[in-house]
């Protein structure tokens, strides 16, 4: 449909531990990673879906998925192939270890430059944030490095005109929905509403089962700048990590033991303690 210039979307994803299952070792106070399932970051699943649905809407194109992570992140890429991605690239090397968001955005931006040189990229998708770090920084970092427009918290693509090199995108802001017109290529970080996730049809599942993601290391096929990757390329370091010490709680009383009236009286004393305006004596205000 787009003739000799089909749409090319790149989606950057991350494999994350399912943080709802993360537990802390009560003895050592450290994170128990064993047995915690690794999943595709939930927002990224919608980013892949948005790219695949855009391809369908335009009647053709290509979706390339990339991730930086350990070898096991290949599993996450295969899930994206099941969703409809055409090409998947795993960027993995011990040298990338310890990367903060600045170093991560360097690697992903450099990879996208190389992908773009092979087949020009029209749109790049990221999830709005990853649930393990919750920083929401890598997408903006990549857009900045590539010097292309950034639209965060995208919820819909209203128009996408490859020939005119423009798109109209809706993004969620505090005041409502902002409707933005942008030039292409553009980088979106997406909310889940951007595209509902569908079940993959059987042929795709079969194709994905046979698919082998490409593996890129720190040196081949793309030589990444060793000064900008991993710990070396990361301005931030973790000084210390600890389990949060809860604020100390007070007394716990029970209705069964004290009766309702006594419990409510105690509750009212605590509410008084909060100095809530409406309860201050003499105001007589009915809210």
């Amino acid at each position: 449909m787009n003739g000799d210039n089909p749409m090319h979307a790149v989606v950057a994803i991350k494999q994350v531990p399912d943080t709802s299952n993360v537990r802390i070792d009560p003895e050592t106070g450290t994170l128990i990673r064993e047995g915690v399932p690794a999943i595709v970051n939930p927002y990224d699943i919608h980013a892949v879906e948005a790219a695949v649905q855009l391809k369908e809407r335009l009647g053709g194109g290509k979706v390339t998925v990339i991730t930086m992570g350990p070898p096991k992140a290949a599993e996450a890429l295969l899930e994206c192939v099941e969703q409809g991605a055409d090409r998947a690239i795993l960027i993995t090397d011990r040298k990338f270890g310890g990367a903060d968001t600045l170093a991560t955005s360097y690697v992903l931006a450099r990879a996208i430059e190389v992908i773009n040189a092979e087949l020009p990229v029209d749109i790049i998708f990221f999830g709005k944030q990853a649930i393990d770090g919750d920083t929401a920084q890598v997408g903006p970092g990549v857009a900045t490095r590539l010097n292309i427009p950034l639209i965060t918290y995208a919820v819909a693509i209203e128009e996408f005109d490859l020939a005119a090199r423009r798109a109209v995108v809706h993004r969620r802001v505090e005041q409502g929905i902002e409707v933005l017109e942008t030039t292409l290529p553009v980088l979106l970080t997406v909310e889940k509403e951007i595209a509902p996730v569908r079940h993959a049809p059987l042929p795709r599942l079969i194709a994905a089962a046979r698919y082998k993601p490409e593996v890129w290391t720190a040196t081949a096929p793309v030589p990444f700048d060793p000064q900008q990757i991993g710990l070396k390329g990361s301005p931030t370091v973790v000084g210390k990590a600890y389990t949060p010490s809860p604020r100390s709680g007070g007394e716990v009383i029970s209705v069964a033991a004290l009766g309702l009236d006594a419990v409510v009286a105690r509750a009212m004393a605590v509410i008084e303690q909060a100095h809530v305006r409406n309860l201050q004596p003499g105001t007589g205000v009915v809210s």
């Binding site: 809860p246 604020r247 100390s248 709680g249 007070g250 007394e251 716990v252 009383i253 029970s254 209705v255 069964a256 309702l260 009236d261 419990v263 409510v264 105690r266 509750a267 009212m268 605590v270 509410i271 303690q273 409406n278 309860l279 201050q280 004596p281 003499g282 105001t283 007589g284 205000v285 009915v286 809210s287």
Partner: peptide, 29 residues
């Protein structure tokens, strides 16, 4: 663990009682 006061009980019993108490207070201050 972090509550100033914790009440073990049914919220459908405790909250209506609290509402009565709070409203009573607000009316006469």
């Amino acid at each position: 663990q972090i509550a100033t006061l914790g009440i073990v009980g049914d919220l459908y019993e405790v909250i209506p009682a609290l509402i009565r108490e709070v409203k009573g207070q607000s009316y006469d201050g």
